[in-house]
Each structure stands twice: as C-alpha cells, then as structure tokens.
Nucleic acid binder design. Sequence first.
DNA 1: GCCAAACCGGAGGCTGCCTCCGTATCGTAA
DNA 2: TTACGATACGGAGGCAGCCTCCGGTTTGGC
Lengths: 202, 202
Amino acid sequence: MRPTTAASAPPTGITTIRRPLRADAQRNYDRLVSAAHSVLSERGSEASMEEIAKRADVGVGTLYRHFPRRIDLVEAVYREGVESLVTLATSVAADATPWDALVEWLDGFVRYAQSKRVFLTELHEAFEKNPELALDSRERIRIAAGLVLERAQQTGVARDDIDAADLMQLVGGMCMARNASMERNERLLTLVLDGIRTTAHD
Amino acid sequence: MRPTTAASAPPTGITTIRRPLRADAQRNYDRLVSAAHSVLSERGSEASMEEIAKRADVGVGTLYRHFPRRIDLVEAVYREGVESLVTLATSVAADATPWDALVEWLDGFVRYAQSKRVFLTELHEAFEKNPELALDSRERIRIAAGLVLERAQQTGVARDDIDAADLMQLVGGMCMARNASMERNERLLTLVLDGIRTTAHD
DNA sequence: GCCAAACCGGAGGCTGCCTCCGTATCGTAA
DNA sequence: TTACGATACGGAGGCAGCCTCCGGTTTGGC
C-alpha cells in the first residue's frame, strides 16, 4: 500500500517484497511529508491537498500515488513526528548529561505535543479508523521517555518515584489542555522539571 | 445569528430582542435538530447536509437559514443532548428514590456520552472554534450530576467522599476510552455504582 | 379577507477530494 | 553509451458536499 522503504516510511504489517522507491519518488515522498507538516501546522484542517502538493512542488497526482487518502498523509506526518521524538531520545541520551538530556527531550516533547494540537481534529479521525496507530505511538513515546528518565534517575538527578507513563500523562495532559499555549507550556514545563529534580528535594 | 427562542434554542450572549419564530419555522427547526441527531448518530462525519434536510423533510435552504454552517447544526445537536441530560436530572430527582434517581441519571449519562462518541470528530472542531461551548456544557452537566449525587449522599445511600466532578471524570473518562462499547460501559457502570453505594461500605 | 413580513425550496456556484492516462524519467542490461 | 521496460509524474476533469440566491408560498396581525 505504502512504500515500505527508507527511514521515513513506516513498516507495514504485511511486509510486501518490493524494490526500493526510485530516487525521484523517494525525494517527492519526503518533500510531501515535509510540506504537509508545514501546511497542516499553519492551516490545520483548512489545509487542502492541492496546497500541500503545490508547497512540495509536485502535482496532486503524485501526492495521491504516495498517499491514497488524505488521512494517510496525516498519519505519515504524525508518524514522522513520533519518530523524530524517539530519535531525539537516543541522541540526547548519547550526547548530553542525564539531566540536560531530560530537559531537552521534554522540551522536544512539548513542541511535538503543541504542533499536534493544531491538526488534532484530523488526527482524531485517523485514530478512529486505525486505533492501533494511537496505541503504538503512545507506547513508542513512552519507551523513549523511559530512556531519558531512567538514565536521570539512575544517576540520581531525578526523583525515582515516578515512571515514564506518569511523566507522559502529566506533560502530555498539560499540553492538551484547552487553554494551553506555547508560552504557558514552556513555563509549566520548568515547573514540572523543578518538581522532578532531586537537588530541590525536601 | 441563531433564533433565540423556544425550548431548544440556546440563549445567545447578546440577547437580541426579536419576535418568536413563526410556527412553521419553529417546527422545522425542531425537526432539523432531531433529524440531524439521528443522521449524525448513524453516519458520523459521513452525514451530509442534504441527507439531514431530506430526513427532516425540508429543503437545504431551510436548513441553512437555521444553521448557517455545518458546525452550528452539530452544536445545536450537542446542546440538545446536554439540555435533555439536565432535564433528566431534575425529573428523576423529583420522581424516583434518591438511589434510583442516581442510577437512572448515570445510565442516561452513559448513553449520552456514548452517542457523543460517534460524532466526536465534528464536535472537536466545534469546541476548537468555540471553546466556551465545552466549558459551559461541562459545568451544566456537573451541576446536574451534583443534584442527583448530593441527594443520594444526603439520604445516606451514596458515600460522601466523592463529588460531582469526580463522578463526571470517572464515568465520562470511562465512556471516552478508546476501547469503550455500549455493553462494556453498562457493565462498568454497575461496577461504579457498587463502588458508590454505601451498603457495600467496609 | 388583505398584505407585508417571514419563510420555503432546490437549482446551481464553488471548492476540495480523488482518478485517469498520456508523457517524462529512471535504472539496468547490452 | 544507448535502448527499453518499469516506474513515476502531473494536471485536467469527474464528482460530491457545502453553501447561496431568489422566485414563489405561507403566516398571522389587522
């Protein structure tokens, strides 16, 4: 159904054996996801397929070959966000101190959650039609969160009476609240971080 | 904007003084809301305005005079559901024993929440554009819940260490869960009721 | 019963999703 | 390098759904 190749394409349940995408096709696939991301962020559910195709500098035919339904494109954008969040976890875990890694990753998580809000209506529909999408993604993110959180806990810079699921619910819920904004989120995140840090322990 | 009259029409912020709807207009208004309710329940976001008009035995023009945007119709249907839930609270509080009233009302609440699920995508959009709709409604329902709950608590048949907001969050959350179904909801509700009832207290 | 105000209805405009197929490009084998 | 089959591109156009417009009808106060 969808190309089962390259970094950004998700693994399908049935792994059809097929040759990799042609170079131009792969390029267009990437450009489409990227264009969709920015148009959806800007215009939410107002975003039209034509506009996305135009932004990617590609015909609508090409768009529809890669993403037969609008929902498939939304799903791809969502998956990419999840994927980059997972990648971020491993990269900050490798490069930064445990505490900084946690801070940086949570910052990325807040940005991710924020950007998700704008096309939440679309996303909700995708979740309806494909419930495991939501579950899978949540689980993947939870594991990523566990990676940075547990590292911080093991080195003693984060209190250890919380787990990744707690953290997700707290920060995720905060971002999804109806009166959330980027500024408020950033502010609340520092508050949460102060709560997690052990030096400020009683 | 919208007719500010009769039982089913919601009070607008700016209370324009205007004569009541003509009899035929009021009749059509009611039929449209009712038709929209059933079509939306059956077909969710697939429901088309044409189909709703046809079900109400009315032209699309008439539909659009009453509800200029699709979202206005969704909102009206939603408000009607909330309203009937509030009405239910006062009527069961008047007619049934405190415990039975609580059971009946929660049963109605579960049905309401269940029916809301099917057009949640639409609803989400309405909430985006008009955030106070969600807040208002939640508050109205909370008060209704308080009516039956507190009555049960005052006569000693329900434990009094919970309040209406707790109840809403518990039962509402349960209904909104991704794997909810009518049967499961009914089953879980009996479970919750057993937890609330004081005779089973330790 | 009369008349102005209010309302009805459905043809049609417009926009956005998606399909179709002739043309262009890629990758491979000679 | 060339040639050719497989693969991908693109945009005109079909189609459906949202919404508008306005000529005809109904209502209700006098």
